[in-house]
Amino acid sequence: MRVGFAVFPGFQMMSLAAGSVFEFANICSGEAIYELATVSEQGGLVRSSTGMDVATRPLAGEAFDTLLVGGGVGVPCPSEGLTAWIATCLPAVRRLGGICTGAFVLAEAGQLDGRRATTHWLVAHELRSRFPAVRVEEDRIFIVDGPVWTSAGMTAGVDLALAMVEKDLGREIAQSVARKLVMYHRRAGGQTQHSELLELAPRSDRVQSALNFARRNLQAELSVEQLAEAAALSPRQFSRVFRAETGQSPAKAVEQLRVEAARLMLEQTRHPVEIVARETGFADPERMRRAFLRAFGQPPQVLRRAARSAA
């Protein structure tokens, strides 16, 4: 299966990281299932946003099973030639994908009209505004709508590629690839782009260790004393350092982690709300409902129905 990566001047190098997924799929399967090629409108050297040049083949005459269009640091402005070629590549290719802001190239070519799509959350509003025919869902890692795949920010392109490998070769190969790439796991397409650990962004390893401990032990009570012990600080010192680094109390941070975990369980499993509340440390559904209202302005059941409807 030939996988093409279409680039343009100023493309972001991280777009090509998804190529490693297909490379290691060949290694894990023991045979050359995927053949990779980098293409551009004219071929030759194409300069990335980092200033590094990448050798490419011209689009004309190339045939692919899967074509992925990379993104740029900002919203890309594809050439007329590239746009025209993307506009006609379906159904000649089995899968067409846009990584990060590569979704704008697909939208410009009309390939996202009437389809669900995602992109980097920073520019999702612009995608929606410029292309009203596209059903933009900015809070998704990747979205598959028929033969068209789109992903969120750059690293999400790796998740998208892993999902393609899983679709082609099965879960076992995909998991083996993820392990070799030192990925914890492939994020599900419906998973939110945002992570509470990223939002908290502690500066010190000690506070980070306490947050990691909390995330691994959400079912526990998670008192300040427990978190302070994980951080190797006294409770008083821990509370002071934690607030200074994250801007909030340990209790509020733990609630955010529980809300994030509960939302993922609601979106990705069929567990009853009672079990989700217990597994994520809320103890009872009412406490979880109040936390969801504070975080999202909606109760858990509404978010679950929205996720199922999207699926």
Rank of each mutant, 00 (worst) to 15 (best):
G97H: 02
L222W: 04
L16K: 00
M154T: 11
G97K: 00
V123M: 07
A262Y: 07
E221V: 13
A152V: 07
D168T: 07
V148S: 04
E229W: 08
E199F: 13
P58D: 05
V302C: 08
V7D: 04
V241E: 15
G190C: 11
R116M: 12
I33F: 14
F5N: 01
M154K: 01
L266D: 02
L227S: 05
R287D: 12
V105E: 00
V207S: 02
G190Q: 12
M13Y: 06
G189L: 05
G70H: 01
I173G: 05
A178P: 06
F24H: 06
K180L: 15
R130I: 13
H194R: 15
R278W: 09
V302Y: 10
A262N: 03
V165T: 05
L218C: 12
R215I: 06
S129H: 14
R57I: 07
R47H: 10
L59M: 15
P147D: 11
M14D: 10
G102W: 00
E267V: 06
S176M: 13
P202W: 07
H125E: 15
A18S: 15
R289P: 02
R263Q: 11
R94S: 14
G81W: 10
E23N: 11
I143Y: 02
R135Q: 14
A220V: 05
D113W: 03
R263T: 14
A201D: 15
G281A: 09
V73H: 07
H125L: 11
L264R: 10
S249P: 02
E225M: 04
V207A: 03
Q256H: 15
A251H: 04
G10R: 03
V207N: 00
R206F: 09
L233I: 03
G30C: 12
L303N: 07
H271P: 00
V93M: 07
V134A: 00
R278K: 13
G51N: 05
L160A: 10
A228C: 09
E31T: 14
P91R: 06
M154C: 14
Q248Y: 02
A163T: 04
A163F: 10
H271D: 09
F5K: 01
S20H: 14
Q237I: 09
T50A: 15
R171M: 11
R135V: 08
